[in-house]
């Protein structure tokens, strides 16, 4: 079901991570993702795993909830594993499977790649789960503010993003409803070749577009009625100001980066071939 998708969803809770400045979360997430690609041995990954686990714990987001976010990427993960497993040359051949040879290097890359992807998705969804879409766009807006000088409409872009995020669940639900309504009128959405299937989408897409335009029109009117007139002269209900905890977070992140980098490269920690 469409409603099960959790990527980009916000999970409300009163945690230390939730309270951090969105800029901190954006920057730290980026740094964390970078750190994942510097590791050369298992120690780095263990370190990254512990760090991530502590963050998840601090964020008070149920573990199950995060796991569900991984579901949609299972296919992607499998493909990555298979490609790396069978198509990476180098090192001792561990075993052969029909015409494919699994090498030591292949197994290693496959395992590392999987771990990386899982950590990457978990890290990124931890950011979206603990930051409201609005805070996220606020953070981006503030970080990208210098671009204003070269005439990039930063405020407008961030407003568009936050509205899009707010309306995604509404439009998904609407799609579900329209699909059901047309199915009830005998529409066949599943069988047929590609062209027939594309044709079958017309009765769904047209009403969906009509509805999206109507909503956009209504929303624009509602925003104008509440005196919205662009970014100039606006104040903020939640202005972004760094607090003590934000500096602490940066400090922790710096320590992590140094520690993870050195551990991941120089700590002689090996298990079997990893």
């Amino acid at each position: 079901m469409i409603r099960d998708i959790t990527i980009g969803q916000y999970y409300p809770a009163a945690s230390k991570i939730h309270m951090l400045d969105p800029r901190v979360k954006i920057i730290c997430t980026l740094l964390y993702l970078i750190s994942l690609f510097t590791f050369k041995n298992l120690a780095g990954y263990v370190f990254a795993a512990v760090f991530l686990a502590v963050c998840v714990r601090l964020a008070k987001v149920p573990f199950k909830y995060i796991m569900r976010g991984l579901k949609p990427i299972i296919v992607l993960l499998l493909i990555t594993v298979l490609f790396n497993l069978f198509l990476t040359p180098g090192g001792e051949i561990l075993f052969t499977f029909w015409r494919f040879k699994v090498t030591e290097q292949g197994l290693r890359t496959a395992v590392y790649m999987t771990i990386r992807l899982i950590f990457l998705i978990t890290g990124a969804s931890l950011m979206t789960l603990t930051t409201t879409p609005n805070a996220l766009t606020d953070g981006l807006e503030k970080m990208l503010n210098p671009l204003n000088r070269i005439k990039v409409p930063v405020h407008e872009i961030s407003m568009i993003m936050s509205i899009a995020l707010r309306f995604i669940p509404i439009l998904l639900e609407e799609t579900d409803k329209i699909m059901k309504a047309q199915t009830a009128r005998g529409a066949d959405l599943e069988s047929g070749n590609i062209i027939q299937k594309a044709k079958a989408m017309v009765p769904i897409l047209v009403p969906l577009f009509v509805s999206a335009f109507r909503r956009a029109n209504d929303l624009a009117m509602a925003m104008e009625a509440r005196c919205y007139r662009g970014g100039a002269g606006r104040t903020k209900m939640k202005p972004l100001i760094y607090n003590r905890r934000d500096y602490i977070a940066y400090a922790v992140m710096a320590v992590y980066m140094i520690a993870a980098f050195s551990a991941g490269r120089y700590l002689p920690f090996h298990v079997w071939i990893f």
Binding site: T132, N134, L165, R215, A222, R226, R234
Partner: peptide, 26 residues
């Protein structure tokens, strides 16, 4: 339409939207 006039993704931020536009201090 209740869905088409709520702008923010959190209740309190939506209520703050109007005053923000008016330039009211935080």
């Amino acid at each position: 339409n209740p869905d088409n006039q709520i702008i923010a993704a959190v209740v309190e931020e939506d209520v703050g939207f109007g005053p923000e536009n008016l330039g009211v201090p935080t």
